[in-house]
Write a protein that binds this DNA or RNA. Sequence first.
RNA 1: GCCAACCUAGCUCAGGGGUAGAGCAGCUCACUCGUAAUGAGCAGGUCGUCAGUUCGAAUCUGACGGUUGGCUCCA
Length: 582
Amino acid sequence: MADTLTRDERLYRIRHTTAHVMAEAVLQMFPDAKIAIGPPIDNGFYYDFDLPRSLKPEDLEQIEEKMREIVKGKHALTREVVGKEKAREIFHDQPFKLELIDDLPEDVEVSTYTVDTFVDLCKGPHVEDTGAIHPKSFKLLNVAGAYWRGDEKRPMLQRIYGTAWETPKELREHLNWLAEIEKRDHRKLGRELDLFSTHEEAGSGLIYWHPKGARIRTAIEDFWREEHRRGGYELLYTPHVGKSWLWETSGHLGFYAENMYSPMELDNADYYAKPMNCPFHIMIYQTAKRSYRDLPLRWGELGTVYRYERSGVLHGLLRVRGFTQDDAHIFCTPDQVEDEILEVLQFSMRMWHAFGFDRIKAYLSTRPEKSVGDQADWDRATESLRKALEAEGMEYELDEGGGAFYGPKIDLKVQDALGREWQMTTVQFDFNLPERFGMTFVDKDGQEKRPYMVHRALLGSLERFFGVLIEHYGGAFPVWLAPVQGVVVPVAPAFNDYADQVAKTLFDAGYRFEADLSDNRMNAKIRSAQTSKVPYMLVVGENEQTAGQVSVRTRTGERLDPMSVDAFLKMVAKKVTDRELI
RNA sequence: GCCAACCUAGCUCAGGGGUAGAGCAGCUCACUCGUAAUGAGCAGGUCGUCAGUUCGAAUCUGACGGUUGGCUCCA
């Protein structure tokens, strides 16, 4: 029977059972421990405990050791249907379990699973016996605080995370994957490659882009602007602060105030740093009487916004308090909306492919119970989103009722080189703001009508996107993005002039090249370029100088035949214009 | 915000009740050197901040600040 299970099902059981085994081990160490829940999760499992003291990393090793012993006992997992009454007796000294029992629906079959000496309230499923768990295929990873039932008003428990697999080899592979994630950590690479920094003294969650980071951002923005020009967008620049009137009208002071920076008072008025760009774009919309002939209006802005995020959630470039959205708002007639959405989706896909992301998943979120707007508009908008996804042949998951109160949306999650998913693109209808600001356009029939408004951010925020990009490439950016595209390395000081001249030629042609004229030896220069993940190292000496050539070494260690500076320039130019992904 | 761990030179880290160490980076000097580290020397820190204990604190205690892992996966 076990043969018929899928790998995911087998792993689910292994992880579930391993969590129980861990709970038994913890109870052996702390007989008074109160146990909460212990589900399997992606790649592993966790279990939450209320313990008499904080766990130390050494404790994990000890728990792991006990777990191995338990597992080796090949104890059977036995299921027993007990009913609520009996369950209450069994868990009379386990308050968290009692609470869970109370919350179970009446009609559900209440069961327990027993392994060795440990009985847990559990619906299963589990492995047949602990012989199915290889003692060297699991590992406890870390301890973290977690609120009982995720509620910060409830007790803080200690959560032990672990990972578990079918074989020791799979465990090793997973641990290697975790090591790779650590190696690619954008905070680490950001420091090593001198891309960006943050400064607690100057404010957490605020990003400082260093010259090399700024070069990459410039390349991203230039590309972004050009694509928007082609895509029929106009670009806007709007202020960073707005008076309370604006945020009262938009409703932000009502429903978003806790995420906004406190106001600055000036001339008896409160000014707020913007958490979103939309009200500003609407102000521009309102400067003229708009005709159906003007629509659609596609207005984009690289708009920097500020939001208050709780200090504990800040994380490098990925979760910050100040960031630049690649924002745009599309104002259109209901007739136009279908085409507009399709174009946005295609635009987004072009963007992701250009940056080297091919695996993309879509999520369609529909109307929640508490929401504003006409049902007919919601239906039409949702239909246009669905049609666009289908026209693009994209697989998508439906999140019924998962939309914002002001409109349905599509979110795109992109998968990076390590298979991790990041939510980036969002395309969102808004039936709220046009209403609040009283936006109109004059239609063919001379009647004033309400335009449709769509918010969309493709990359999301430049900071967050940069963080994902760094990790996706592990800092080895493709040539079109690399902050330094190549370093010219003279084999000896006698060739410094020639090296300088080569670098200058490439620089003047518009590329990011420099000569390394330091006192170091050639090997050291190559090493230094290599560790900064520079795509090309151009080695020049006697031969090259005489022939007007360069010897090209790539960061992959490959050596190309010597070529003229001109030929190299053409090669780089092609890679840059084609945005090749090597 | 809450729980835990951590905070020593620009970076990575060692040390630890008697007043601070390494490697790399930086600076200086020497070196005619072909595809991942030439050598020598110099300089660099009120050991996160503020209090307390002590003859003496970077080391022990507490508060504060920051960073990191979590706080969404539901028997």
